[in-house]
Design a protein around this nucleic acid. Structure first.
Lengths: 333, 333
DNA sequence: CTGAAAGCGCTTACAG
DNA sequence: CTGAAAGCGCTTACAG
């Protein structure tokens, strides 16, 4: 292509400079060159640029299989990431990490073929896979989860305080029998949300009954049947909207009215919170801001592999809907 | 990297051949080279290959903004595409086409930078934008919609027969007052589904009352309030699950029971069909097979720009759930 | 302000 | 079975 542009009698160097608006070419020449390029339908070849500076300008977004599919939340997240990447002249390549590859510790082909300059890992992966990544020769960061290893950069929503504030809110509404729904050993997010809930419980000197922590899934993430406590709580704090939705249906089946008989709250503000009847009060995850932060950080790390951001928390906020009501006889303090 | 592989005393040509399992290298040498490459943590540079053969091995998947976001169906579709592309040693780059770019007729940057070898357009785009694409120097095909221009390759679900069979089924259940819900001017899919419905109506000599075609959205795709006919139908055929879900809620608000008072069916078999209460009988779109076909076709077109597939229909099938019941007093034939 | 030269890491004929 | 040469389309020093 560039040769053809030479047909106005300049070298390819000059054309390159003109098209990239670099110094060392007169304005008139630049305009003339740009004009001709447009007329000729010239398209820049980003591959050649990549060849030169060793950067693909692609970022791999890795979503473990179990979080994709039914759970559209991460796909929605990916959509945001892809837009933000675009704004930074980068592109996202989605990589669903299947169970087999995760267990067998095989890195995706986009790694082996140097298709990407870095990875955003969206959704908790196994410990051994984390170690595999660390040995690999590519920058990466965790999005929406983290690990106890402080050296790994992670961007997470503020699960702890989000749930802490949500539980505080319920207690202010007079609730004192509050259950938590979620397997507290399955992901760091769920665990932190539980701990935020627990902090609120402790601060208010409430009792944490054993059967008030209700597992929602097994270790592999498969949902299990929810066991309602014998002594019914007045409020359920669910680790995510989807489970809150499932719980709502179950409660209604058992003849409980929401929010009159018990309140239900979720987390994420995803589709399930608006689909539930009544709609769920929940904590909104700031996907937009998290995406911005993730993209900025990974690009920074591509430029400077030593760059580190540590653990970045992004605040959410409570969205009030119809699934919470004050307790009839407020608890006396 | 390859230079380093030279350290066993062969040329880069031999290494290239060995790693690509080409003829002209002894098996022993091949093994030795592969072994060393693995030990040294050699990573193939796909950019250089792209440079050489002028192919990026990326396919751009373009989703118009209005179909993304709330409607996770296309995102889900993208997930499938991305997996299938992976299996074909290709990669997908998601491009959300925003309203502005579509109106101003600007092609995405992945086109201008030769980032992709072809486009899969997932979701109906405006006529002028179609023409723009045709002038562009890149193969593309339409997925899940088509246009009257026969020259443009398109892969669609069999909307017409899907809805035709669904309506037949309702009529067999004794329904004779069947309404269609959907703006029949907004997309080719909806129009075809309507026509399938209409064919069934005609074949059974039923009357198509004017207010039995209920618009669900305006031209821009924004949902509008559904107008229930004065003379209530016994069944509603909705152009998609989401609208069927919305309608279900509206009917229940008005005191109608589903399916006792009226049956409701959808199309797509997406999340809305299982979220609705009762769950919806619907037509499942074969996303898997459509993805396979789309990927195969676009790669074929990349290799041979003259290759054409025309309009490919992929069959769906009826999924039976609880939103349909036979009419109490069956219509006498 | 302009351009000749070199190089990014591969692969494809072609010659030995 | 093996390798020297050329080239894909850019950009980056460097020299004029």
């Amino acid at each position: 292509m560039r040769d053809i542009a030479n047909k106005i009698g300049v070298s390819s160097v000059t054309v390159s400079k003109a098209l990239n608006d670099k110094d060392g070419v007169s304005e008139e020449l630049k305009d003339k060159i740009k004009q001709l390029a447009a007329d000729m339908g010239y398209r820049f070849n980003s591959v050649a640029r990549s060849m030169k500076d060793g950067l693909s300008y692609n970022i791999g977004v890795v979503i473990p299989e179990r979080f994709a599919g039914a759970n559209q939340f991460y796909l929605h997240f990916y959509e945001h990431l892809s837009k933000v990447l675009d704004n930074h002249k980068y592109y996202g390549i989605l990589q669903i990490l299947n169970v087999y590859d995760e267990e067998q510790l095989v890195l995706p082909r986009i790694y082996h073929e140097k298709k990407v300059d870095g990875f955003i890992i969206l959704g908790q992966i196994s410990k051994p896979y984390m170690e595999l990544l660390q040995q690999a020769d590519v920058p990466f960061l965790f999005l929406d989860f983290y690990t106890d290893d402080v050296d790994i950069d992670a961007i997470i929503s503020d699960n702890f305080y989000g749930m802490y504030e949500m539980t505080n809110y319920l207690i202010k509404q007079g609730h004192d029998k509050i259950a938590f729904v979620g397997n507290i050993y399955s992901t760091s997010s769920i665990q932190d949300r539980f701990l935020g809930y627990y902090k609120s419980i402790l601060e208010h000197h409430l009792q944490l009954q054993e059967d008030y922590v209700i597992p929602d899934r097994d270790r592999r993430g498969t949902f299990v049947d929810l066991q309602l406590p014998k002594d019914m709580p007045t409020a359920f704090v669910c680790n995510c909207d989807r489970v809150a939705y499932i719980l709502s249906n179950k409660l209604k089946e058992h003849g409980y009215r929401i929010p009159e008989d018990c309140s239900v709250v979720g987390f994420d503000n995803d589709i399930y919170s608006t689909i539930a009847d009544p709609q769920l009060t929940t904590v909104e995850v700031n996907v937009e801001e998290m995406s911005q932060a993730a993209v900025k950080s990974i690009i920074e790390k591509v430029k400077n592999p030593k760059h580190t951001i540590g653990r970045l928390m992004v605040k959410g906020r409570i969205i009030h809907r119809q699934s919470v009501s004050a307790v009839k006889q407020p608890h006396s303090l």
